[in-house]
Design a protein around this nucleic acid. Structure first.
Lengths: 351, 351
DNA sequence: AGCCGGGATGACACCGTTGTCGCCGAATGC
DNA sequence: GCATTCGGCGACAACGGTGTCATCCCGGCT
């Protein structure tokens, strides 16, 4: 085996530059640049010499320097801001966007915001300094107006999962309101009259929409909303689990639950199992997840399509970046799919 | 509400540069630079004028230009190469590294390789052109020697989850061999004599180690390895599920299974449930996962500590980047935790 | 033979920042 | 009172590439 030079043996070799390549090939730097960029008007013999010099020196052009001067001004880098890369929904969106970016030769800078508005603002500033071509954002701050200055300088923006506020940009998300109506109606059709809704922070667009959809369904069925408790402000599985347990131990607990996002479903499923109620209380979750089908009972969900959302968002973003789309910003609804697995089909107890 | 200027209204304003700030503040550009970098020898009144000019123009310095000239040569950007950001293990590692990078003002370029060696090489080349300061890599290519040239130019590298080949760099990973031994011994102690091992591609270091650990345990218990089938080459949940089903339908199927990574566990759990064997065949998985405790039976696992692995990897990486650590490259073992939940404690059927 | 067009090429400015260095003026030392 | 320091500041080169433009050369056409 060949001897290995250790990690710490740095500066080592000075990195080759275009000047070194030019000198070795016996040409001017501009000719090297021409070869690198496949520009015309280079004799094939010259081009070959240049390519050999590049290979011999293992030269890789410096994209910072290149972008700095280039007329299109693009860095071929985009930013992705999500709640957390560990959230399965965000991870799927992330992957879809990464794939779309890779096809176009762009790299992705991913940032987890932990649903903190200040981190959204800080992250955007940091990405702006890096001159990313575009940003795909799951908005969390009360307003996205802080992006306007960067947009005036040509930054493209697309919002994912939630509607933006204070700026006019494309948005790609599930039709949360309709999805919530469908899920709630599904429970009501089984005869439930006391349905509980567990929700994320209500300053989020998604939570608002899902609440509206929930109420739409109650209204259509002529149900008194005051019989249907709404528990908002649930940020993670932990707090959701505690909230669900408290709710089920209350006087007149609901006979069915609708969970407004994946982490809430996780917590609620846990709570019901611990209380031994998983076969007595109906449950529909928002967002599909691994093993939803193998739990007992299987968890009925309104599944989002995160890959599709990510793919569409990336397409909009790159269309804006390449200025190939100058239509007015638009909101794109991605459909959801109700998947029946058992938990959502539990009937209310006989009166 | 204020009117919103649409996304497509680009070039719009020319972006302010340090020259604009200098002119507005009535100073030289170098003074602006000094204020920006908190360098000494600027009168406080002057600094204040400069800061006002910065704010007024909403100027954000261009990090590309800055890094290009700076003497330390750092871009404050690192690369992270994983199998896929949708894999929960990778996602946790990703998050830990992102957090460590954020503290140090570095951004993370994440790339999913889909376990494709060629993409590893291509991704490293792309990151090299971007002049990242370091790369955290879950190695997939047969050799990582392709990183040597970049390392000679100062690139820092740390390997995650798997051992590197062909280069000398730090590595942070679980002690797979010991973990596999512990898991296998756990099954053997319950009386199993025919234990099946389901494995990832055997060219991967982790799969090799887990196989060795498995055999170690058999050997120590005096068990004939030929009674214990090994199914390698399982890349995803799908193929694992099919392989597990085929195995259980064979003559003399094993009475216990050990799954060599998270996706294999997912597939195998599915297969056992579909065959109705989940309470008759013991199973231990590698890697913990959401709902492992709520399945029936609960899934016993050897849990890795992905956050810790990511954190330690990032610490090594930044130590190398900052040249604050010049020790020889080192392999760091992160312990695993056997978590008993039921599936691993199922005894073999009475003879 | 002289003119012209265009392919091949390099000199040089430039992108937006930081590093080097020199200049100026005020404070300090003797 | 004069040399010496030093704080404050800007001119200019440099980072590693690309854009612009001038130049050279050669073949084809009058």
């Amino acid at each position: 085996m060949t001897p290995l030079s250790p990690n710490a043996s740095e500066p080592g070799v000075r990195r080759a530059t275009i000047t070194d390549v030019a000198r070795l090939a016996g040409v001017g730097i501009k000719t090297v640049s021409r070869v690198l960029n496949d520009e015309p008007n280079v004799a094939s013999a010259t081009a070959e010499r240049v390519r050999q010099a590049m290979a011999q020196l293992r030269w890789e052009p410096d994209l910072r320097a290149r972008n700095l001067r280039r007329s299109d001004g693009r860095t071929h880098t985009i930013g992705l801001l999500v709640g957390s890369v560990t959230n399965p929904f965000a991870a799927q969106v992330n992957r879809a966007i990464e794939d779309a970016a890779a096809v176009r030769g762009s790299a992705v800078l991913t940032v987890s915001l932990d649903e903190d508005p200040e981190r959204e603002i800080a992250a955007v500033a940091a990405l702006t300094r890096r001159r990313v071509d575009g940003i795909a954002l799951m908005p969390i701050a009360p307003s996205q107006a802080h992006l306007q200055a960067a947009m005036d300088h040509g930054l493209a923006v697309v919002c994912v999962d939630r509607e933006p506020r204070g700026i006019a940009v494309d948005a790609v998300r599930s039709d949360s309101r309709t999805a919530a109506t469908v899920a709630t109606r599904h429970l009501l059709r089984r005869g439930h009259r006391r349905v509980g809704l567990l929700l994320d922070r209500e300053d989020l667009w998604t939570a608002q929409q899902r609440r509206l959809g929930f109420l739409d369904a109650l209204h259509a069925a002529g149900i008194d909303p005051t019989d249907c408790p709404i528990l908002p402000g649930l940020r993670d599985a932990e707090s959701s689990s505690m909230a669900a347990a408290r709710l089920m131990r209350s006087d007149a607990p609901p006979t069915a639950l609708f969970c407004g996002k994946n982490l809430i479903t996780f917590g609620t499923v846990r709570a019901l199992q611990h209380l031994g109620l998983q076969h007595r209380v109906a449950l529909v979750g928002f967002d599909d997840f691994e093993f939803a089908d193998l739990l007992d009972p299987g968890v009925t969900v309104v599944a989002q399509r995160p890959s599709q959302i990510g793919r569409l968002a990336a397409e909009r973003l790159f269309a804006r970046i390449e200025r190939s789309d100058s239509r007015a910003p638009e909101a794109i609804d991605v459909p959801t799919d109700l998947i029946e697995r058992g938990s959502g089909e539990i009937p209310p107890p006989a009166p």
